[in-house]
Each structure stands twice: as structure tokens, then as C-alpha cells.
């Protein structure tokens, strides 16, 4: 009920995000990134010579089959994993560890089950004065459509609500980047669809830079300015596809379907003629 209302509101009100200009300096730049893990005495290369850039306000999807290292890449960018070679620069400074300015959104299992909705959203802003914290929590409760559930524990929420909660917890600290790691992967088709719409809405209103890891081609074509297509063994960038479609995207338009086909082909899943 709640999510349908939210979705309807989005349909009418969602402003169309404009594609960010490419002229500005890169927000994120990944250069010559290689990650190897020791396996049985040898070194397995998980990521090899990754180079890409992401501009302020862009929504970039990392798309690839499972095992291509896209989550590993996001973990390196997030500062949870040190690269074997190469570096990650954000606003020109190397990433040395996790940072509240850039929040990771896991699948909905990332919310803290011992805290209520309010407790979760307020988790990262404990240092703020109580009144400001209360207002911010209320603002994000409202934004992700969880009003009436402030005192509920995650166990009482649906999968989609938990995912919204996690996004709200991330946004509450006012980050300038969001990293989403297959965040909608565990949800059902309709919830996933609604959450993508809501994410686009948040992206348009909050102007965050978003990196979204997914193995879902539709997800990437619906969301991204650019899709970084990755290949496996070793994980590398195969191609970068700019998705030049206005938002909100019509998922049955001919151009949408062409992009979809193009990505299917990149992943070797196209229908054999």
C-alpha cells in the first residue's frame, strides 16, 4: 500500500535528472587497479588493470556475471579492501579506508536487527545534537515511506521496507556517494521495480554520485548513465556503454530494447541467429 503510493507519487513528481557534464574533473577515478588473492599457494587474479572514472552526480552501474569481481571492486572503492596494485582516487585523494562520506548499501540484511527504524536511521549521526538528529531521522523516515514504523524493528518490516531503511540510514549521514552492492537483488520483481524508481527519485533530488553493482541487465539499463560491463577470470572491464536515454525510462521503447540487446550481446547472452 505504502510503496504503491510512493511509486505513484514518483511517477507524477519525479524530476528528470539531467546527464551530468563530462567536462568537470572526475569524482572517482580508478587507475590500474589489480587485486590478487592467495589461493592454495598461488595468486589468483580477481581484478586486472581496472581503469574507469565516474563524475560528480553520475549513476554508474558495474554489470557483470557472478565471479567477475564487481563486488570486490566495489569493496576496494569503499575502502574495505586494499588493492594489490593501482589506486582509487576520490576528489583527487587516495582512498585509505571506509569513510562516512561514502556509504555502502548492502542487501537489506545490512540493517541492524537490534535497533528500531529510528535507531537505524540515526545510527550514523549520533554526534549531532538530539534535536537535529530527531529532525533528520524524521525527514528520512518520511522520504523512504516508513512513517508509522519508526518504532518497529527490522524483523517486522518487509524486504523492500528493510531496503528502504538501509538507504535512509545511508542518506541520513549526508554522504556524497552511495555504493549499492546488488542491493535490490534479493527482492521480488515488483518491489525491485518500485525501489529502482525511488532510487532514481532520490538521485534526482539529493544529487548523489551512485555506483551500483548488479548482474541484472534491465536494472542497469533502467538506472545508469553509464554501464561498465565486466568480464570474469580475471575480472576486467570489457566495455563501457553510455545509456543515452531520458528519465524516467520507458522500458518498452525501441531504444531501451536496443541498449538491452547490446548489453545482452556484451555478456554473451544474445539470441544466436
Amino acid at each position: 500500500m505504502r510503496s504503491q503510493n510512493a511509486a505513484k507519487r514518483l511517477d507524477v513528481a519525479a524530476p528528470t535528472p539531467s546527464p551530468p557534464s563530462q567536462a568537470q574533473p572526475a569524482k572517482l577515478s580508478v587507475a590500474g587497479l589489480t587485486v590478487t588473492f592467495p589461493v592454495d599457494g598461488t595468486h589468483r587474479t580477481v581484478l586486472e588493470a581496472i581503469d574507469f572514472e565516474c563524475h560528480e552526480g553520475e549513476l554508474v552501474c558495474l554489470l557483470g556475471p557472478s565471479g567477475c569481481g564487481k563486488s570486490t571492486l566495489l569493496n576496494v572503492i569503499g575502502g574495505f579492501l586494499k588493492p594489490t596494485q593501482g589506486q582509487v582516487l576520490i576528489d583527487g585523494a587516495p582512498v585509505t579506508g571506509p569513510d562516512p562520506r561514502r556509504i555502502f548499501v548492502f542487501q537489506e540484511r545490512g540493517v541492524f536487527p537490534w535497533l528500531t527504524v529510528e535507531g537505524n536511521i540515526g545510527f550514523g549521526i549520533q554526534h549531532l545534537p538530539a534535536e537535529e538528529r530527531r529532525q533528520r531521522v524524521a525527514h528520512y523516515v518520511e522520504m523512504v515511506g516508513l512513517r508509522g514504523f519508526e518504532r518497529a524493528y527490522p524483523a517486522e518490516l518487509s524486504g523492500g521496507m528493510k531496503q528502504r531503511l538501509e538507504v535512509a540510514r545511508a542518506l541520513a549521514v549526508g554522504p556524497d556517494m552511495l555504493y549499492l552492492d546488488e542491493s535490490f537483488g534479493a527482492l521480488d520483481y515488483i518491489t525491485r521495480h518500485n525501489l529502482r524508481r525511488e532510487l532514481l527519485h532520490l538521485w534526482a533530488t539529493e544529487r548523489k554520485t551512485i555506483l551500483f553493482v548488479t548482474h541484472d541487465i534491465d536494472e542497469s539499463v533502467q538506472l545508469a548513465n553509464r554501464v561498465v560491463v565486466m568480464a570474469a577470470r580475471p575480472g576486467r572491464i570489457q566495455r563501457v556503454v553510455d545509456i543515452d536515454l531520458p528519465y524516467p525510462r520507458d522500458i518498452s521503447s525501441a531504444r531501451y530494447l536496443r541498449y538491452r540487446d547490446e548489453l545482452l550481446e556484451e555478456l554473451g547472452l544474445a539470441h544466436q541467429r
Binding site: D99, F104, R109
Partner: peptide, 13 residues
């Protein structure tokens, strides 16, 4: 303790 909680905690500084 699931790693994602630890990561989330560190992510929030």
C-alpha cells in the same frame, strides 16, 4: 557477527 554489520559500523566511522 555478520561481516556486513562490521562493515556498516566502520563505514559510519
Amino acid at each position: 557477527v555478520p561481516q556486513v554489520y562490521v562493515h556498516a559500523g566502520r563505514n559510519f566511522g
